[in-house]
Structures are given as C-alpha cells and as structure tokens.
Simulated assay, not measured.
Amino acid sequence: MIAGPNAPVRFFVEGVDDFHAILHLLRRYNLSREETPQFPKFRLPRNENEHDHSQGKRAVLDAIETAVKANPNESVGFVLDADDDVQASWEAVAHRLVNVSVDAPAGISSHGFGGRSSEWGTRVGVWLMPDNQRPGELEDFLEELVDGDDELHLYAREATQGARSRGAEFPDGKTSKAVLHTWLAWQENPGRPYGTAIESGYLRHDSDAAVRFVVWFRRLLAPDPQSTD
C-alpha cells in the first residue's frame, strides 16, 4: 500500500525559523493546506523557546525512527542543517534510516534523499541544509535566495566581516546568519523574519536553490520518491 492522496506529509524541522521559511516558500508555489491535501503537518521536536541549535538537530535525528514507524504507508520528511560536516550529518541520518528498513546510500544526493521503508511502507525524504553537499545551515540556503546582483547583500557581507575587527563576537559558523540579518535590516521594511521576507519577495522563491528544494518536496508528495536524481 501507499499513502492515500489526502495523507499529509509529517514534516520535521529544527526550529521556528525553519518552519516559517519552508512554510512560506511552499506557499509561493501554491503548496498550501487549501490547495494541497498532502501539505505538511510540521513538527518541531524541541521546545520552541530553546535556542540551543544542536539540540534542535538532535531532536530531529531522534524523531526519525519513531516517525517512520508511526506513519505506515504515509510520508515523512526531515530537514536538518549539515553544519560543519555534511558526511557526518548524513551518516547520523542514514544509521537511523537503516534501523527502520530504509535503504540509505553511502552519501546523500545533491537532489536530497527519497526512499521507502520496506517494513512499514513509509515514504521518507531528507534534506540537509543548505544543498546536501556543502557545510552550512538554513541561513546559507536563504542567502542563495538573495538576488545574485544585489549590491546591498555584498555590502552586508563586507560590513559583517568588518564588524569582526570591531569586536563582533558571532562565531565563524554563524557568519551567514549575521550577514542575512544585516541585509534584512536594510530593507524597506527592516528586520522582517525569514518567512515574511520570502512572502514579501525580498528572498526569491524562484532562485535555483529554492527550485531544487521544492522539486525534492514534490517528490515526497509523489507516489514513489525512490529516485533522487
């Protein structure tokens, strides 16, 4: 059996920023609860007031096996940050997939992962932010949604780097986040959150990065997402 046409995707993300960014990106493609019965039911498997980034990722990893077992013949999706090591992040996911009878390759495709549990029939999709190939996180993905010719974004990166020499204390791994927030602070409506920035068109829903993500998501809605290429 496969999931019925009206079965929603159970979609697990690390935190509130991921939730709103992905939600508004999908809406720009008319993937909404009103128009798409399978529109995801998001899950935030951590306290939304908890700001420990690694705890959010750990919670998503820990949710994989339970979600696959709890949603037989339906679809579940997991979006996690690759952080500093794409391969290590994928191996952490793959280990849990194998435990619930999902064949997982040695490495994740640039198109994301799609597979099915041979025991429970659950369709499973995995995306490692930003693009399944590079180290990084949500903000690295969102930076790809900025127009490549946007001079203000280039200046935001220069200004952010310059702030380091003046005592700014954000770690190297959070540079993209600092740049993105700086750039958003300079828009007509300053400081809009990620989801609203997508809705307002500051972040382009039709960029190559956004299109690749939406193609992966649509495969998760399809009857058989076994192929990831």
Rank of each mutant, 00 (worst) to 15 (best):
W186P: 01
S227E: 13
S118H: 07
F217S: 04
G201K: 01
E144Q: 15
S118V: 13
A21T: 04
A94P: 01
S89D: 00
V68N: 06
R43S: 13
V146N: 07
G201E: 05
F170H: 15
A163V: 01
F170N: 01
A67N: 02
G148I: 14
M129G: 06
V102Y: 03
N73A: 12
D224T: 13
S89Y: 01
S165Q: 06
V100K: 03
A104G: 03
I198G: 04
A104Q: 04
D140T: 09
S200V: 07
A21K: 03
N71P: 04
P5T: 09
G4C: 12
K57M: 14
V215E: 05
K41H: 09
D150C: 15
R218E: 05
P40F: 09
V146Y: 15
E50C: 12
R46L: 11
A59Y: 10
P190T: 05
L154C: 00
H205P: 02
S75P: 01
L97C: 06
A159W: 15
S227I: 08
F213M: 04
G56H: 07
I108R: 01
D149I: 07
R212K: 15
G125R: 00
L142P: 03
Q161I: 14
D131M: 11
F113R: 02
E151P: 02
M1V: 09
R27C: 07
S117C: 10
H205T: 02
S200C: 10
V13P: 02
R27M: 14
D150I: 07
Y202G: 00
K57S: 12
D172Y: 11
F170A: 06
A21I: 02
P225G: 10
L61Q: 00
G4F: 11
D229V: 13
Y155H: 06
I108H: 05
I108N: 05
H95S: 14
V124P: 00
A222E: 05
T182F: 15
H111I: 01
A70P: 00
L23H: 03
V9P: 01
G173D: 09
R28M: 03
P223Q: 06
A159N: 02
E143L: 14
N49T: 11
D172T: 08
R157N: 06
R218L: 13
R212Q: 15
L44C: 13
A59H: 05
D84L: 09
A210G: 00
D62G: 09
P37E: 10
R157H: 12
V79A: 08
Q187M: 09
L44N: 08
E14K: 01
R46M: 15
A82L: 07
V179D: 01
L184C: 13
D131R: 03
E169L: 13
V13A: 08
W127K: 00
R58D: 05
E143V: 09
F141C: 09
H51V: 09
A82Y: 10
R218G: 02
S54Q: 13
T228N: 02
W120K: 04
D147T: 06
Y194E: 07
H24G: 03
Y29W: 14
I108M: 12
L80N: 02
S101N: 08
D17C: 08
F42K: 00
P135Y: 05
D62F: 11
S165T: 11
D103F: 09
P72D: 07
G107K: 11
H51E: 08
A7F: 13
